[in-house]
């Protein structure tokens, strides 16, 4: 299968097979006009199978937030057809409106417009807690 190379954009590689749509939705890629390729179940020597997303545009979003969704992914920034940066997203200190607080006693359950914000409290064990009620976020796998 041939996908044209990017001139300026982002390649999100090493996504766990089957999770590319989650990232697509998280980054609101459906709102973009540019070319986007979602490539699923690509054979991978390391992972067996993986997903890849190619975005033919430079996004103004904090891609580190992807580290919460899938810490194994690789982000490649492409400029003038060349890869200028390759990195693994770090776990962000805060994640906002990615997961919802499930604690029925949390203030977010009655105040609908409050952002659901979680703070990283244990980097090693990837534990995030709600900034309001300190309940643990349910981890994405």
């Amino acid at each position: 299968m041939n996908i044209d190379s990017l001139h300026n954009g982002i390649v999100i590689d090493h996504i766990k097979a089957g999770r590319s749509m989650e990232i697509y939705k998280f980054l609101n890629l459906d709102e973009l006009d540019c070319s986007i390729a979602i490539i699923k179940n690509v054979p991978s020597s390391k992972m067996g199978k993986k997903d890849i997303i190619k975005i033919d545009a430079v996004l103004d979003v904090d891609l580190n937030a992807l580290g919460y969704i899938d810490s194994g992914i690789t982000i490649n920034l492409i400029e003038d057809g060349k890869r200028v940066k390759k990195y693994h997203p770090e776990l962000p200190e805060y994640i906002s409106n990615i997961v919802k607080c499930k604690n029925p006693r949390c203030i977010t359950t009655i105040e609908q417009e409050l952002p659901h914000v979680f703070k990283l409290t244990d980097r090693e064990n990837k534990i995030y807690r709600c900034i309001y009620c300190e309940s643990k976020a349910e981890l994405s796998q």
Binding site: R105, C106, I107, T109, L114
Partner: peptide, 27 residues
């Protein structure tokens, strides 16, 4: 004092005067 956990924290984010948590649920 508020029955929901985190309510005084929300108040402190918008308040221009000091907020004391006098108990937020079981938190």
């Amino acid at each position: 004092r508020h029955p929901k956990e985190g309510a005084p924290m929300v108040a402190s984010m918008y308040s221009t005067i000091p907020v004391i948590n006098a108990g937020d649920g079981g938190h």
